[in-house]
């Protein structure tokens, strides 16, 4: 099942294209964070949260990134304690 030489080249195989996706995601992040930033600067009047903590700078974003990274790191730490061989129970 080796990769035949004449197989067509896929768009995703170019490292440059993967970078393009990466920058596109950064661009999208900026775009969706924009309304909140504008609200904070009093340019656009628009409230999204219902309680005070929501006024914390880019509340959702904060949770999205920090919560997520913490979770991954925690899982990585727990691996030392939880991981066993694949046939542990057999």
């Amino acid at each position: 099942m080796s990769n035949p030489d004449d197989e067509k080249k896929y768009w995703l195989e170019e490292p440059a294209n993967i970078n393009k996706i990466f920058y596109a995601v950064i661009g999208l992040c900026v775009l969706v964070a924009l309304p909140k930033v504008l609200t904070l600067l009093d340019i656009l009047l628009f409230k999204q949260g219902r309680f005070e903590l929501a006024d914390f700078f880019v509340f959702y974003t904060f949770f999205g990134v920090i919560g997520y990274v913490m979770m991954i790191l925690l899982a990585k730490k727990l691996r030392g304690f939880l991981m066993r061989d694949e046939d542990y129970y057999d």
Binding site: V25, G64, V65, Y68, A75, K76, R79, M83, D85
Partner: peptide, 27 residues
């Protein structure tokens, strides 16, 4: 916001090889 920043975090973790590598294991 939540979703795109989560995607960004995932991409960063993969890019900087912080994301836990997949291992054959029983957890």
């Amino acid at each position: 916001q939540l979703l795109f920043f989560a995607i960004l975090a995932f991409m960063l973790l993969i890019r900087f090889k912080v994301y836990p590598s997949e291992l054959r294991s029983t957890n």
